[in-house]
């Protein structure tokens, strides 16, 4: 067991699927964060067996839509004075821009690369996102 000190003010991004913490680190641009960031891989989890956790010092703006898009099972705890003061609910955003690229070679975004890459939530039950332009389903991990 590794000990990581508690947070005074900041966020704990918990229940990240094991192995995906670096995807989230990159997606949230945490390399640009000037405060402490702890990345915990393969932590023991009752529900998931293993999970990843990210602790971030400081109350910066977190893109919850982006986190919800990556995995809406993630939980975001807001820490103030070393106590959890809020659990931010994550939902699947109805529309998300420039976080994934359409892989359909017949899509207009393949030839006009300055276009915004926009995906919309097409099926909330199956968690299917489709490209706004060509309607091709976005594959997981894309």
């Amino acid at each position: 067991m590794i000990n990581i000190s508690g947070l005074k003010d900041g966020y704990v991004i918990d229940h990240i699927k094991a192995g995906r913490c670096m995807d989230i680190y990159r997606a949230l641009d945490l390399d640009k964060c000037t405060g402490e960031v702890a990345i915990i891989k393969n932590a023991k989890s009752g529900k998931q067996g293993k999970k990843d956790i990210i602790k971030i010092e400081g109350l910066l703006d977190i893109n919850l839509d982006l986190l919800g898009f990556i995995d809406d099972n993630i939980t975001v705890n807001v820490i103030k004075d070393e106590k959890i003061i809020e659990k931010k609910p994550l939902t699947l955003p109805t529309r998300i821009s420039n976080v994934a690229k359409c892989k359909n070679p017949r899509c207009i975004t393949c030839v006009e690369q300055e276009l915004e890459q926009i995906f919309f939530l097409a099926d909330i039950e199956k968690k299917v996102y489709r490209c706004l332009y060509c309607e091709e389903a976005l594959e997981k991990g894309q």
């Binding site: 017949r106 207009i108 060509c134």
Partner: peptide, 10 residues
């Protein structure tokens, strides 16, 4: 008419 899908939306 355009060969690429989504061109009309653009």
């Amino acid at each position: 008419r355009h060969p690429k899908e989504g061109a009309a939306l653009v």
